[in-house]
Nucleic acid binder design. Structure first.
Lengths: 239, 239
DNA sequence: AACTTATAAATGTATATACAATAAATGCAA
DNA sequence: TTGCATTTATTGTATATACATTTATAAGTT
């Protein structure tokens, strides 16, 4: 192996994190030592350390002085990702689907406009869907997203496609963090009919604002989840 | 300054993070450069980098190549902490209190026993409280915690004191992560009476399991929060 | 004025080295 | 066998150095 064949640290972290997934290490399994990584990739120890540090920062590993590096619990790894409805359903072993109720350009309500940091008179896409799990109503959602951010969004099929996938892969938006406000509410009207086929039931309401790496809000969304079918899982990791 | 006077990296990170709080930098304010930190504390650049990296790992700073380090949004800093009810109320500018309903040693129900990884026949403390905000009922909570973990817990005043404070400061338990399952439920009986003074209302139910650094569960708690007064805020940061 | 180029400032990556601190394994003595 | 001391393996900390990459600014050039 010549010097030019050497991999970069980020390539090495990619290889290592894939190995953790594929060879599926169990949680708390001992991981390779700094020395092993150093020799395997022909890099200095400090560089091997840096590769390990990336995996620690990502929440994949944790380290104990004098013992080594260990694979974190799945639940902690999970806390470092942002889930779409589609991914959530996949995780729970159900088929995600949508029934599109409304999809048009609108002037957003003020609460959405302010959270999306839009100027008055600017247009949003409004996406109103009933989210289905294995064909059954699971949630009722309304998404607002600025037209300027995702022009020609109407070319996509929001019944079959994932909005988060479109944002990331088609419009190259990189998610950074999201802010969810979760409350218990009574439902009525359209929401209640869609979820329960009757009036005056209850739901878990989630208000979501998703940001990219430059602190731009990508979406403002209100969702009502079926109270019997869904509960929200929140993992807080102390740093 | 002689060599022996030199501060350790962790002392330096403490100083820097306190300065961020006290001199309260606004979000996205430019922070000191590596070179400034290096000269100020008479350390090498790599060491200054490491100090900065700690602050990045803690979610306090973020860095942009070619520009410098910047102070993260409060909301992101907050996502790296675990809140007690007491701290939550403080954050919202309300006075936290409790009305103790029940406090005794019991054999825990199976769901609590399994989540606390306890053997059969082992005893738990049961703490049943109505949580008050500015004197008004805010939540109804039941906590189970193994007697073996916190012997003589009954010496403390759970009406005035914070259980999380006692865990950390009196029993030296170090929190690592917690797992919350959040759902919308109908209330009745004791819970409904305590929160709403009537039957058949709704509440935000939070099931909480708190772990220490060795993955030992410290508490299993069920809480019912007043649906009109409380909503749960969840920040997910992508790594 | 607009564009290009050079420079400086800042973080990022990589290496080499030395020693400290912790944890587990080993060996030895009572 | 138990207890203690030693060794070994491993991560943690700190320094010095060199060059790469990105960003913003300044200086020319047209």
């Amino acid at each position: 192996m010549t010097a030019k064949d050497k991999l970069t640290t980020s390539q090495i972290t990619d290889i290592l994190s894939k190995e953790i997934e594929d060879m599926d290490y169990s949680e708390n399994d001992k991981f390779a030592t700094e020395r092993e990584i150093m020799e395997r990739f022909s890099i200095s120890r400090m560089t091997a350390r840096q590769a390990l540090n990336f995996l620690v920062a990502k929440g994949i590993l944790y380290r104990i002085k004098g013992r080594g590096a260990f694979v974190n619990k799945r639940i902690i790894q999970r806390s470092h990702t942002i889930y779409s409805f589609t991914e959530l359903m996949k995780e729970r072993g159900m088929a995600a689907g949508s029934k599109l109720i409304e999809f048009k350009k609108v002037i957003p309500p003020e609460i959405a406009r302010l959270n999306l940091a839009m100027s008055e008179g600017e247009f949003c896409y409004l996406i109103k869907r009933i989210r289905l799990a294995d064909g059954e109503p699971y949630a009722y959602e309304i998404i607002y997203t600025p037209v300027s951010l995702v022009p020609n969004l109407d070319e996509y099929d929001l019944e079959k496609d994932s909005f988060y996938r479109i944002l990331q892969q088609e419009y190259h938006k990189e998610f950074s963090y999201d802010k969810k406000t979760i409350s218990a509410v009574k439902t009525d009207g359209e929401v209640s009919q869609a979820l329960y086929n009757n009036d005056h039931a209850i739901a878990l309401k989630i208000l979501d604002i998703l940001y990219d790496v430059n602190h731009n809000a990508l979406e403002y969304a209100e969702s009502w989840y079926h109270a019997e079918k869904y509960s929200y899982l929140s993992i807080s990791v102390k740093k």
